[in-house]
Design a protein around this nucleic acid. Sequence first.
DNA 1: ACTCTTGATTGACAATTGTCAAGCGATCTC
DNA 2: GAGATCGCTTGACAATTGTCAATCAAGAGT
Lengths: 326, 326
Amino acid sequence: MAQPRVKRSELSTPPEFAGDPIVWAAWLYYEERMTQEEVAERLGVSRASVVNFLQEARDRNIVTIAVASRHLQSVQIARELSRRYELNSCVVIPQGSDELPIYERIGRAGARLLLDILEPNDVLGVSWGRTVLSLSAELAEAKMPGVTVVQIAGSAIGTKEFSPELCTTNIAYRIGGRCVNLHAPGIVSRPDVKKLFMQETSLVEQFRLIRSCTKVLFGVANLSDASTALRSGYMTPEKIKPYVKRGAIAVMSGRFLDAEGHPVLGALDEQMIGLTLDEIAQIPERICVAGGVEKIPAIRSVLRGGYATILVTDEPTARALVDADD
Amino acid sequence: MAQPRVKRSELSTPPEFAGDPIVWAAWLYYEERMTQEEVAERLGVSRASVVNFLQEARDRNIVTIAVASRHLQSVQIARELSRRYELNSCVVIPQGSDELPIYERIGRAGARLLLDILEPNDVLGVSWGRTVLSLSAELAEAKMPGVTVVQIAGSAIGTKEFSPELCTTNIAYRIGGRCVNLHAPGIVSRPDVKKLFMQETSLVEQFRLIRSCTKVLFGVANLSDASTALRSGYMTPEKIKPYVKRGAIAVMSGRFLDAEGHPVLGALDEQMIGLTLDEIAQIPERICVAGGVEKIPAIRSVLRGGYATILVTDEPTARALVDADD
DNA sequence: ACTCTTGATTGACAATTGTCAAGCGATCTC
DNA sequence: GAGATCGCTTGACAATTGTCAATCAAGAGT
């Protein structure tokens, strides 16, 4: 039954068809449940090659393997969190291998969830940060007709591997939607400079769009430890000092919150270009992706303030949030 | 590090949360790439249980594993078929294990493709048959906003495990769309009975909807061998005799075609309730799911007649169709 | 014509995964 | 309350899968 074994290079294989054995190996293995040995025989290569084909098929997203986010939402601890903080929905990922940093693991769960809840013609506001960037990188490709992705907070300088725009462009590209970036810094030097920027017609239009967001996606940072905001030079310790003095412990989308979830306003707010906390709270569906024990107080603050309708986090953090007494 | 091993039944596990360990096993194994042993340790159960959990997770579609249909379309033989018969797209599945019947394997590929090409607000016409039924059973659950699924050919009596309505209801249920079944037999006893039926307001409305289909899905049957149509009592040998005499070799959606792909009309056409071939040809996107060497002449006839814009078939059949001389 | 480099392929071995019969405990029946 | 039954769990073994260093083919450079 087995065909004679031929090396791939001996077959007349124009380069554009080189994917064939990979696709077929994937089909036979994953859909028809043949063993790798059977696939190898059918394709006329060694089993080791089949292993390589399958690896490449996964890498190139020819096969997709994903845990449906609605099932993560039905996990007990997720339900408890939803009830406690009146969330529309909540995803809790189990404590797993520590090989990947927590924000990548949460980013992946957030990516699955985002695809499940995005609807055609949504306008998705996107803040920026480490977890949001991970989410954008983990997103599977999918066609979501008519979706617009807009940046809701001005940019920081950006390091080699991280620029704020990457969050929006990644997401927009993968879901095949329109991408609208804010062409403005997140913090300008003086309040009057902000006014100048905000009068620019392009920014006026962008803000009109931003205020029509149907969903928004953001992370949360601590003020105490080295967050992306600090490391990226977006904020400096002296700039945030007055906020800390007045009780600020958390930052979301560049804005400050105290432990109770109340906004902490200050001079800097008049220099920031991006949605305010009040404006974010107007958006119907607000997805917060954040986890890790060090962020617990900050996340609690966001939840108490009612700024999130959906939370994606990890198990230890979720337990701490449920156990917290108000 | 390992938690003490506790039996699931010793934990306070209200039945509605019984899925928890299954969901988490799935996440840890498939998303975090832990080994089953690590998962077992983390969950405090034996590895054998993890195997069972993962099995159940797959069965219950908590994890989905699927080969993207657009990659099957890029396979060489599929491109050749597309060029040869001017198809918009073509999916060819490789010859695999013979454990599953050919129509189930093609049904699965068709299911993947359907999800890829369905767009919001589509009106999908669905014929009925063995392969279409398999497709409907293999379809993954997904929300396709605003899609309507309509039956385009009246029903036959239906056997225990197969009723024509199942094709439409399955598809509609899984994509979360509206389901419109034809409440009429596929073949009535006399032409004047058909006229009476067609004047019924409910049928008039249904046919108006059917004629607005944006996509249509159908199989093909041979006339020579025992097709579903014959086995289900929908047609009888004596009824189809006149058609065979005049060259009919294929049936699609209850209507007859000759080897060249030309319609073969006859007395029976005036007793059939359902779309005519001409009406089907008006629909913009026409998906034909059919395979198996015995169906080659019938499929070729459908392709020659230009009744399909998308074909889902298997490799040996595809090769035969490409090699055929016109 | 020879050698070097690159990238795909392979066989042999190690690790992981699937199977299955036996075990265990909860619940039901008489 | 003994015994039967059902469903879930487990340990041990068998089968499958992943790894990796060695090999091979083809093209580039001298």
